[in-house]
């Protein structure tokens, strides 16, 4: 009997917390199908009284939102792939090789995680402007393609691979590059998924750097686009709901699909660290 009360309480607490967690998303999605008049009316209902797709269609005609979306997908994919490859390669060398200065280099890698953006962004901005990289995608890719977090995660993960496995491949005559591509990469799937989702999200939500670097509207990314949209049409709440829905839902879908592997990766990195 006592057990039943306990488990009932736990369940109610979890359900309540779960509802509070998803309510903002549900409200956002439902509101994006409401008219502006209905959104700002005083008598609100959860479901749209008058279902409309107008917010989405007018979003596109007033504002090239799909272009921002496509740009963000492109940059996020390119950076994520680069970060994964570079993190794995560096993680492999830093965990499985012994050489002088290894700890010093790893120390610097760890430092990148601790240094606040505010310390480096001003000089980085100055450097990039002087180098004429303004308004190029190179300027968005270069400063983030090496991730201290990624290298740290991969170093932790790869150090758990048995040395015997690598030795056996070496005895069979495999060189280091094929060992890396055929053994190390495929065996690190969990950590790779964790890095992939985080990195994708960081690029997807990064505001300040693309805002500083990109001038032309057709090259701009989603997070900056959202802010511009809000600045220009500050009373178009329906439009803002549609725009935020478009920028949130894709990441959520990717997360739900890969969540199992992703959670394993996140947990592994943290506990060992």
């Amino acid at each position: 009997m006592k057990k039943r009360v306990m488990s009932g309480t736990l369940f109610v607490v979890l359900i309540l917390a779960g509802i509070l967690t998803v309510v903002p998303f549900v409200w956002m999605v439902l509101s994006s199908f409401k008219t502006n008049a209905e959104i700002s009316s005083l008598n609100q209902t959860l479901l749209p009284q008058e279902f409309t797709l107008n917010n989405y269609t007018s979003l596109q005609s007033n504002f090239n939102f799909l272009r921002y979306f496509a740009n963000s997908v492109f940059i996020a994919v390119v950076v994520t792939v680069l970060v994964i490859y570079i993190s794995c390669l560096c993680g492999f060398v830093l965990s499985k090789y012994e050489f002088k200065g290894k700890n010093l280099i790893f120390g610097f890698v760890m430092m990148t995680m601790m240094i606040p953006w505010s310390v480096t962004i001003i000089s980085r901005y100055t450097m990039f402007m002087k180098a004429g990289l303004q308004d190029t995608y190179l300027s968005l890719i270069l400063p983030v393609m090496v991730s201290g977090f990624g290298i740290f995660m991969m170093k932790q993960d790869i150090s758990g691979l048995p040395d015997e496995l690598l030795e056996a491949a070496r005895i069979d005559g495999a060189n280091e590059f094929s060992i890396f591509h055929r053994i190390v990469l495929p065996m690190s799937k969990n950590s790779i998924s964790a890095i992939a989702i985080f990195q994708f999200l960081w690029i997807w939500e990064d505001y300040l750097w693309p805002y500083l670097m990109i001038d032309s509207e057709e090259k701009q990314l989603l997070a900056v686009g959202l802010t511009t949209f809000n600045g220009r049409y500050s009373t178009d709440y329906g439009g803002l709901f549609a725009a935020t829905t478009i920028s949130i839902i894709p990441v959520l879908i990717i997360y739900v699909i890969f969540q199992k592997r992703f959670v394993a990766g996140v947990a592994a990195g943290a506990v060992k660290g």
Partner: peptide, 28 residues
């Protein structure tokens, strides 16, 4: 439950902040 609780963490902060800004609106 784990999937649900983790959802806000994997959403872009700029977009989420806009949604919350409207959630705090005194009229609606």
């Amino acid at each position: 439950f784990r999937t649900v609780f983790y959802m806000p963490t994997v959403t872009p902060l700029v977009a989420v902040a806009f949604v919350w800004k409207i959630m705090y609106n005194p009229q609606f």
